[in-house]
Amino acid sequence: MPTINGTEIKKVVVACDAGMGSSVMLASQLRRQLAKSAVTVEHTPVNSIPADADVVICHQGLASRARVSAPDKVIVPIQVFLGDPAVTRVVHAVQRGGELSG
């Protein structure tokens, strides 16, 4: 299971089926929360996660597809699109450091 320290995260990718709907919404929220950190937040379709992603956030229902398209990345599955604790964990890891795995 890949792990990464929060301080090494440079790019967070939010993925959804089309890369046009829920991922855009979540990415814009995350971008606001991480505005003060030197982290890029991108949204993409789950089938085309870029190679330079450090952490991938996607809904649990799409996690196995994310694993196929990004086998060596830390994948953080979420259950709800608004205020999921898993997203908060990523934010905290970026801001305060700490291991993320998934």
């Binding site: 089926d17 089938n47 649990q60 229902g61 799409l62 996690a63 196995s64 597809r65 196929v68 953080v76 599955p77 259950q79 709800v80 999921d84 604790p85 898993a86 998934g102």
Partner: peptide, 22 residues
């Protein structure tokens, strides 16, 4: 895989992922 306490883990393996991908 982690699952948050107030939601059961959603299984996303096998045929469903293939159909989703197609």
């Amino acid at each position: 895989m982690t699952s948050s306490p107030y939601t059961p883990e959603v299984k996303g393996q096998g045929p469903k992922a293939t159909v989703q991908r197609l």
